[in-house]
Write a protein that binds this DNA or RNA. Structure first.
Lengths: 108, 108
DNA sequence: ATCATATATAACCTTTTGGTTTCATGTAAA
DNA sequence: TTTACATGAAACCAAAAGGTTATATATGAT
């Protein structure tokens, strides 16, 4: 099998608001764990676990640098989410949206 | 407060694969609970709970019809997800995607 | 009226989740 | 070579999630 063998998928990874906030922080720039956890009221260990879950979903990647581990955003798996969403867009569509959808299909 | 006061939000609602499958079934057509639960190996009560969660997230709506309750898809809350996603699209963008993003902004 | 059907609700159980504290390890700096 | 720092990992905990079975209620059919 393939990506679906992952323990934590994208849908589950982004379900938690703390993890979404972590993603937002990493979208700005790559950061070490301590810097990330400084933005939250919870422990560094808790953030570390969230990063682990995000890692499993391949939404972030950590590279070791000295005694730190720098995490960076890895947005690719969000494409799966986008694809899932695309199916439902037809249900709230107006004409411009529909046109846009057709254009997208031709691009991809 | 406002919509964010909801107990279950869209992100959490779609995190569960069973609930995503329920949404897919309701995207085809509206259905009563018994018909929905016939598609799953778990109990009708379990499905009922999933529908309750989807209801809280306003992704489905149930209307009473005789002794049945017919559920239908209510896709609007997925717009929030789309908006969230749009922010991250810039990170995997190629030029065509970027152009599309600009077009979208002008439409909405 | 009685019976069957469709759902609702309650009580309960197990596993997972999100958090904690404590201790260990690797690396930088004094 | 100590000492400080950044992280990793283990043990533990409470609450939430996802499921069950049993019971109650409302409505359609006989």
């Amino acid at each position: 099998m393939g990506a679906s063998a992952r323990k934590h998928d994208v849908f589950q990874a982004i379900a938690d608001p703390t993890r979404r906030e972590v993603l937002r922080l990493l979208a700005e720039k790559e950061r070490p764990i301590s810097e990330i956890s400084a933005h939250f009221p919870i422990s560094r260990t808790a953030i570390s676990k969230h990063l682990h879950i995000l890692s499993e979903a391949e939404l972030v990647r950590g590279k070791k640098a000295g005694r730190e581990r720098i995490y960076q955003l890895q947005p690719e798996p969000l494409k799966e989410l986008k694809q899932w969403l695309a199916y439902y867009e037809q249900f709230w569509d107006n004409k411009l949206q529909k046109l846009k959808y057709i254009v997208e299909e031709e691009i991809e």
